[in-house]
Design a protein around this nucleic acid. Sequence first.
DNA 1: TTTACGATGTTATACAGTAACATGTAGCCT
DNA 2: AGGCTACATGTTACTGTATAACATCGTAAA
Lengths: 144, 144
Amino acid sequence: MDKTAYLDAARRHCESRGCRLTELRQQVLELVLEHPGVVKAYQVLADLQRQRGAAAPPTVYRALDFLVEQGLLHKVDALNGFILCHHFDCPHDGLILVCERCGGVEELDATGCLSSLTDAMGKVGFTPRAQNLVLTGTCRSCQA
Amino acid sequence: MDKTAYLDAARRHCESRGCRLTELRQQVLELVLEHPGVVKAYQVLADLQRQRGAAAPPTVYRALDFLVEQGLLHKVDALNGFILCHHFDCPHDGLILVCERCGGVEELDATGCLSSLTDAMGKVGFTPRAQNLVLTGTCRSCQA
DNA sequence: TTTACGATGTTATACAGTAACATGTAGCCT
DNA sequence: AGGCTACATGTTACTGTATAACATCGTAAA
Ligand SMILES: [Zn+2]
Ligand SMILES: [Zn+2]
Ligand SMILES: [Zn+2]
Ligand SMILES: [Zn+2]
């Protein structure tokens, strides 16, 4: 999917959820799109300032939070960063692997891999919220 | 295990690994012990300042990093916090469950539950960093 | 038109984490 | 003893991450 098609799909995705992909939000999404792998909020902020002059942290954090809310991005807590989700339109129990060395992102289908985890949680009465697992580590090409 | 026994076990654990649980490190560990669930670094810092006067961030971060290194604490990236590990003496992969409603934290030993995930990652050549999975959801006592 | 609501702008601040360098402390070697 | 070494802690200053609180603006329903 090329960039334009992706943005179109993202717009339709938001509208189908009763939200608007405003110009600012799209601009932030495009900035994330420019980067491979993990993007940091303050990197986006710097990019945004280069494009439209003054901009403050809340501007970019609000846009990023919105995009995460819509499922267009995932937050990677361990790295204080964000990554694109390429499957926002189909519900997926994804397993997202982030390489600590090259910043590359890989997505696995974890369906069928989570049953034992779910069982373990069920034994203590814990009900997990649907969410994506994000793990950090080292990818194949970065193995020492 | 009561507090004294825990601290004794922690001390022996460190010494068996060729490290010392110094007075400062033990003091930080005790401060973490005082809190149920997740503890934040700056909360520990504030507590520490109340006990021994001046103290700066590096003091508490160094101690916390040491304790994580020894396996006595786990870092919870999603919450920028730390939790006690109650079975530091046996190697394990932690599965940390955070209740969205009451904020309680529970750690499961997921060592036997991750093989299918590990297999899936192995197939793409990905080596996960030793880490804890953090999931949010609803705990038993908060079930609606 | 008025009202309400969502989005954005703006300022200031809180919270999280680290670099770099100084000082102390304990064991070891000569 | 004197000096060497390694580790632990103290201290200052800073970078990076994130949010609170309030102001402004556009749009669309009432
Ligand atoms: Zn996804
Ligand atoms: Zn890599
Ligand atoms: Zn543990
Ligand atoms: Zn609960």
